[in-house]
Simulated assay, not measured.
Amino acid sequence: MKALSFALRTTLLATALFSTSGMLAHADEQNQPIAKGAYELAFSPSANALFLATTQGNEGEGGTVFRLDPQTLAVKQTIPTALKSFGAAINPQTNVLYIGNTVSGALTAIDATRGTPLKTLVLDGRKRSETLRPLQPREIAVDVKTNRVYVTGLGPQSVVWVVDGKTLQPVSVVPNTGNMGTGLAVDSDRQKLYVTNGDGELVTISTRTNAVEQRQKIDGDKAHFFLNIALDTVGQRAFLSDAKQPQVLVVDLRDGQVIKAIDVPESLAVLFNPGSNELYVTHRNAGEVSIIDADSYKVKRRVKTPGLPNSLALSADGKTLFVSVKQPGSRKAPPKNPDSVMRIAL
């Protein structure tokens, strides 16, 4: 009886410690603090590694890209970058990682196998002044068939920079993609590139001609800021995250019509998993991630995050979701604790 009582007390104590610690209460969710200034994630299937772009906060002039173990989230390699690192995308065929250096108007290529920077391309080198705001790189997309890298450049009249993924030389600039044209996704098979912007538009670009084919105002006169876009290329659907409306819009790419407005909080990142036909969405202000059935458009699960969820990445087998999580703060009162990466078993 005494042994049973001791075992029971031990179990209760362990449960209490686990539930009140900084760890998350669900066994299939893990959170690991990494560094300040964490932004976007990219997963390398060939290296079985997760990469996190960070600015390292206000410390120094450069940034850091962290290579993480996808199982434990332990830091396996620290890759210093000469410029602050924000955006991230990878070409799984060449295993080259592309990092957007937003405040410097540049793009950096990194050998993801060795973890060594290869080259940096300045996309907009104009000096900022009271009358001039250079375009800033935001999202990055890679066409694996052509090894072209596409980068959105934000401004009142945004652009898309087209870059050769092998040489990191500029190929073309697609002008006039709208006010704050942030979201970016590529359909390699159909040779289409899609951009979303702060005016609630969906812009279709031909990757053959690097020219705008069509721009559509989505959902009438309602105010939208479509921050990001994910594609279901087989079903020809686009999923648009929205910073102004508590919903994610599902749009038919063939005619631009809204298929469904999914009722969720205002959203930032969006990612489609074709293997499970699920949609993942980060809700920064709400501090949670939605896992949505892309057939019924019903929310299957809401995952609370220990901070402000930012970007998303998916493991090669589609069974693990990774989320970068920022800590609340401002320039005047920067966060004291490091940002983290969260691992969610699907």
Rank of each mutant, 00 (worst) to 15 (best):
T102V: 00
P137R: 13
G307K: 02
Q136D: 03
P335V: 10
D164E: 09
I344R: 11
L279V: 08
D242F: 00
V248F: 06
D219G: 05
Q247G: 05
L121Y: 10
P338H: 04
L231P: 11
D295Q: 13
G256I: 01
F226A: 05
T78C: 00
I140S: 03
T196G: 06
D293E: 10
D317E: 07
R301I: 08
V212R: 15
R138G: 00
D339P: 05
L123H: 10
L346N: 09
L314Y: 04
L312K: 07
V142W: 07
G287P: 15
Y150D: 02
T116R: 14
V173T: 15
G105V: 03
G275D: 09
T94H: 02
A112W: 07
L135C: 13
A211G: 09
L73S: 05
T64L: 15
G318L: 07
V65P: 09
N337Q: 15
K332N: 15
D69I: 02
R114G: 13
V75L: 09
E40M: 06
Y39W: 09
G22W: 06
D164Y: 04
K336W: 00
V248M: 03
G125V: 08
K119M: 09
L314R: 10
K192F: 11
D124K: 12
D252E: 01
L308T: 09
L135S: 14
R133E: 14
G125K: 14
T196E: 11
V251E: 01
K336T: 12
N147H: 13
V162F: 02
S311N: 15
G287C: 10
D263H: 06
A345Q: 14
A230M: 11
R343C: 07
G287T: 09
A47Q: 14
A286F: 03
R331K: 07
T233G: 06
L193N: 15
R67G: 00
D143K: 05
D143Y: 08
L184Y: 06
G307E: 01
M342V: 03
D69A: 11
F239M: 08
N58S: 01
A42D: 08
T282K: 01
S129E: 14
L231W: 08
V122K: 15
L308F: 10
L68E: 02
D219R: 09
V159M: 12
R208T: 12
P265G: 09
T94R: 13
G287Q: 11
L8K: 12
N95G: 00
V162Q: 01
T55D: 07
N337A: 15
S158E: 15
T64C: 08
L50C: 05
V258K: 03
Q56V: 11
T64D: 05
A345S: 15
S330L: 15
P338Q: 11
T167H: 09
F272P: 04
K166Y: 08
G63W: 04
L271G: 03
S172H: 13
L202P: 00
D242T: 03
V151Q: 08
S44W: 10
V160G: 02
V173H: 06
V174P: 14
L52E: 04
P309S: 07
S311H: 07
V159T: 15
N273L: 00
D164M: 04
F322P: 01
Q136M: 11
R208N: 07
L13M: 14
L321R: 03
D263W: 00
G125E: 13
V186K: 10
E278D: 02
I205N: 10
S85T: 10
Q30G: 03
A25I: 08
A313Y: 01
R343I: 05
T131S: 15
G60K: 02
I291A: 07
R67K: 15
